[in-house]
Amino acid sequence: PEDEKKAKEALKRANGDEDKAKEILRKLGVDPDRAEELLRRLR
């Protein structure tokens, strides 16, 4: 869904750096736990 698209985009923008991607997602208003879960799934 929408969050998943955001997560993929964030990872791309962060050049695969998960911590940076998490930060980006947090700024986009995605719940930190949700962000973590999404990134884990994309790994």
Rank of each mutant, 00 (worst) to 15 (best):
E36Y: 03
D31N: 10
L42S: 04
D31T: 10
I24E: 08
A10L: 03
R13T: 13
E2Q: 09
K6P: 03
N15G: 12
L38T: 03
G29F: 00
L39I: 15
L28A: 11
K6V: 12
A7P: 01
N15L: 11
A10T: 02
R41S: 12
A7W: 04
R26H: 11
E9D: 12
N15K: 11
L38R: 00
K5V: 12
E36T: 05
L38A: 06
L28T: 06
K20E: 10
A21I: 04
L25A: 01
L25I: 02
N15I: 05
K6A: 12
G29D: 04
R26M: 15
K8I: 14
A35R: 01
K5F: 11
D19Y: 10
E2K: 07
V30Q: 02
E2Y: 09
L39E: 02
P32H: 09
E2G: 11
K8S: 08
E2T: 12
A21V: 04
D17M: 05
N15E: 09
G16Q: 04
A21S: 02
D3M: 11
I24F: 07
L42V: 08
L42E: 05
A7Y: 05
L38N: 02
V30L: 10
L28Q: 14
E36Q: 04
K5M: 13
K27L: 14
A7K: 01
A10E: 02
E37S: 04
D19V: 15
E18H: 15
R40S: 13
L42T: 04
A14Q: 02
A21L: 05
D33P: 05
I24Y: 08
E37P: 01
K20A: 11
D17G: 02
R34W: 15
L38F: 04
A7D: 01
E23S: 07
R26T: 15
D33G: 11
D17P: 01
L11F: 06
K22G: 05
K8G: 06
L42M: 08
R40G: 13
A21E: 02
E2S: 12
K20R: 11
L39Q: 00
L25S: 00
G29E: 02
E37T: 04
A35Y: 07
V30S: 01
D33Q: 13
V30P: 00
G16E: 03
K8F: 09
L25D: 00
E36W: 03
D19E: 15
L39W: 00
R26K: 14
A35D: 01
A10R: 01
D33I: 11
E9F: 03
A35K: 00
L11I: 08
L39F: 04
L28K: 05
L25C: 04
K22R: 12
E18M: 15
V30H: 03
K12F: 08
E37D: 10
D31S: 12
G16N: 07
K12C: 09
L38H: 03
R26Y: 07
L42A: 07
K5W: 12
P1I: 14
E23K: 07
